[in-house]
Amino acid sequence: MKKFSSLFLTIIIFGLIVSLASAQTEPPKMQLPVLTTSAGQSADINTLNVVLEQAGVMYDYCDVPTVDMVKAGVGLGGQESGSGFHVEILTELDKYPKGTAFKSIILAIGASLKGMGASGLTIEDELKRVSSLIKYCTENKILIIAVHAGGESKRGADGSNNERMIDAVAPYADYIIAVKDSNKDGRFSKIAEEKKIPYSEATYALDIVTLIEQIYN
């Protein structure tokens, strides 16, 4: 009986290792300039921006960019921060002058009613905005990176705001990154497997720094 149990345990552990290895893939290479933004207006966009800062990757950031702003490229057409609207132009302008087309976009997924409210958005507005952005990026070969760094607190029941936001972004991404706590139910690894999207799982949000360093060299 004991022998049978240990054999059974070994098979399970082996199976887990194999499934984990097959779920996670080699990170793809991405190019600059990059735009960071939020899908759902949660505070996880701050985590994403800090991750890029730690990785030494300079970026443009806007919490609610429109398709026209993305079309305008680096500098976002001269947009400035205002009430419920935040812009930061940190891209190295000597390498990528204003107007240079973005090569990649990183979306921090996480729905926050407080965050959306501050930007004057409902969940429907935000889903529509994010979908139009993704459509434009896909059509114009701007690679999309979906990041979920909020863990369990930014997950929810089927049909919840957080899950709808994941559905709006993750299946259309060119690369998905999630922290371990975000993928406890295998949500992101399943999407990646089904849609054949490269996927990386980070134990902690701080570990995303290494992944960003790798993809942007």
């Binding site: 505070a43 701050n46 985590t47 800090v50 800062e53 607190s153 134990t203 949000a205 701080l206 570990d207």
Partner: peptide, 22 residues
């Protein structure tokens, strides 16, 4: 916010406790 965010990430990864940012 930036200092709070990186602090939260570091204590989580290096010291093993969660302390999110509001």
């Amino acid at each position: 916010m930036r200092i709070a965010t990186i602090t939260s990430m570091i204590v989580n990864a290096r010291e093993g406790f969660e302390n999110h940012v509001e």
